[in-house]
Amino acid sequence: MKLLAIHWALIGIWALLTLASIVVFVVSKRSSKDMSELVQRTQSWWVMVAIFTVAFLVSQTISIIVFALISFLALKEYFSMIPTRRADRRVLFWAYLSIPVQYFWVYDHYYGMFAVFIPVYMFLFLPFASLLSQQTDGFLKSVGTLNWGLMLCVFSISHAAFLLILPATPESSAGGAGLLLFLIFLTQFNDVAQYTWGKLFGRRKIIPGVSPNKTWEGFLGGVATTFVLAMLIAPLVTPLDLAHAAAAGLLIAIAGFVGDVTVSALKRDLGVKDTGSLIPGHGGILDRIDSLTFTAPLFFHFIRYFYY
């Protein structure tokens, strides 16, 4: 079997994870502080990278299903932590049902419907479904929060899956798979880079009212790291030229930060620390994909505008 660029990229991710695990192991052995959360977090990374790699290598359809499952878990987490109305049980049910439908459009390569199904049809349908219960107390809040969750957890995330079905181009044989790998890797690496720069050099708080642990040093260090990495990786797995790769790096780094603090604002409003407890060391699934909810649609339209 001939190894393609995409395989080398996956091998690179595993190598990086191995290296990171060794560093974490050594640091946790030497440090007198309790590092169990960091160790747990690293272990969870192995599981997530493994799931992603398997889905990626087996088939495109499996990968689409995995993203649909991620949307389902994220939406379930969202609905479980926000105030909901008894009268809206049926509405929540419809919202869940929109997940297989939305991902079917991805599978079907039906871009026109994919782009409007949630922001137009579900947007109009959910309030209608809600008013059928004839309980108007809290109606506005309910349709507002339900639609927002659907946009965040289903519509946004489905853009990552849609990247996958973009065809190969003359500039890049890796096609959609390469673009998806580029997006996911940079988004997640950006999170880790911002966290690490912040831990090492963080002094000046960037937005203390929302996220007291985020600093300017972490943010700028992360942006710079992602910016450089984007330019290094882009020629391997994407059709992006150097200027576009640089722009994509900045876009992912900044949008990722905004996605992260947006979910932080939501958590602060609800008075919870984590969105759930699904991923040991990380919190809930929304804690892990918060950046992706912003980077996926933005990067998708960036690519679509310039290359497809």
């Binding site: 389902f72 379930k76 987490e77 479980s80 909901t84 008894r86 049980r89 049926r90 049910f93």
Partner: peptide, 19 residues
């Protein structure tokens, strides 16, 4: 907590919630 939200008395439609 949460199971009564997922399937309350008198309903047959299960709506997913983390419990």
């Amino acid at each position: 907590h949460g199971l009564g939200k997922a399937l309350p008395k008198g309903s047959f439609m299960l709506v997913p919630f983390f419990c």
